[in-house]
């Protein structure tokens, strides 16, 4: 056996980070009662903008900032359409993906990068030197930790803060929240923009760390997986980590088993993560979705 479980687990964390970032953003959006199926579109625009911002400034962290801004800007289209012009969220989200895929390719034409721009790995003092756990958990780049920190932040926000309570109230019953005097639309627009920013970061993680390069269609469906994981986690932040790492884990393990030369039907194995999601969904009897999810809100109704 050449598979090194320590390296495998470490690789899993890197492979899972983009879907985790995109998923935590979408989770907040959905908890506010909005279903944005445009994650893939926002991710890829984030990927190209992050790539360009990072390479033109020479600083990958500025790239991440640019990607978050670009993702949030694109999500604003969705926010205006669904919140103010009351368009159907499913169709608008699909349209956003289409638009984002096209736009990213137009933006990226002729963009050049240098192979030397890298995001350095941290070596957290002491912790990184612990055998086994150190290499698995404490020798990653800063974005891996940021993604987990965002998850923790979202959890605390939803559970303990007043603003989080309002957001949940808006997602559960927008009419009641409105009657209580909360600005339903403002809450949702902010949530959508947070989702866009996270999706942008996720895209930039692919184009600046995981691959790292820019090519048309580089996100290759990761945004859809992020959507799946949100439901998989039944809209609970901590479960999101389990979902994302399960997905990433199956992908990485599949490649490792192949390299090991095991006689497995690899061409069928790539569907394992999707089937696993369905199985888990059935087993956990998917938690209840926010009651107002996907419904349009207008103050007069």
């Amino acid at each position: 056996m050449d598979i090194n479980p320590i390296l495998l687990l470490a690789a899993l964390m890197v492979a899972s980070t983009p879907i985790l970032l995109a998923a935590i953003g979408e989770l907040v959006v959905e908890r506010s009662g909005v279903l944005n199926l445009g994650v893939e579109g926002m991710m890829i625009v984030g990927a190209v903008c992050g790539y360009i911002a990072g390479h033109s400034s020479g600083n990958p962290y500025l790239g991440f900032v640019g990607a978050a801004a670009a993702g949030a800007a694109l999500s604003l289209i969705f926010a205006v359409l669904t919140q103010f012009l009351l368009t159907n969220q499913v169709a608008t989200g699909l349209g956003l993906t289409m638009f984002g895929l096209g736009l990213s390719s137009l933006i990226g034409q002729g963009s050049k990068g240098s192979p030397d721009l890298t995001v350095s790995k941290l070596h957290i003092p002491l912790l990184a030197d612990i055998p086994v756990i150190g290499p698995i958990l404490f020798q990653h780049d800063v974005m891996v930790y940021l993604s987990v920190a965002i998850v923790a932040g979202v959890w605390a926000f939803l559970k303990y803060s007043r603003a989080g309570l309002i957001l949940r109230a808006v997602g559960e019953n927008h009419d009641a929240a409105h009657a209580l005097g909360y600005n339903v639309r403002a809450v949702r627009v902010l949530a959508i923009m947070f989702g866009g920013a996270c999706a942008g970061l996720a895209g930039a993680y692919i184009s600046l760390v995981r691959v790292p390069q820019w090519i048309d269609g580089i996100t290759a469906g990761a945004g859809w997986i992020a959507l799946a994981i949100v439901v998989f986690a039944s809209w609970k932040p901590w479960r999101l980590i389990a979902g994302a790492y399960l997905f990433g884990g199956v992908t990485v393990l599949q490649l490792n088993l192949q390299a090991e030369g095991l006689k497995i039907p690899v061409e069928y194995l790539s569907m394992a993560p999707y089937l696993a999601t369905i199985v888990v969904l059935v087993m956990i009897r998917a938690g209840r979705a926010p009651a107002s999810l996907g419904k349009s809100f207008h103050p007069s109704t």
Partner: peptide
Amino acid sequence: IWIFEWLNPAKEADAAKALIEQ
């Protein structure tokens, strides 16, 4: 490692890492 695609940078990167780690 077969990735069943001609061009998929993310998958190629993962495959290369898996090979290197082995």
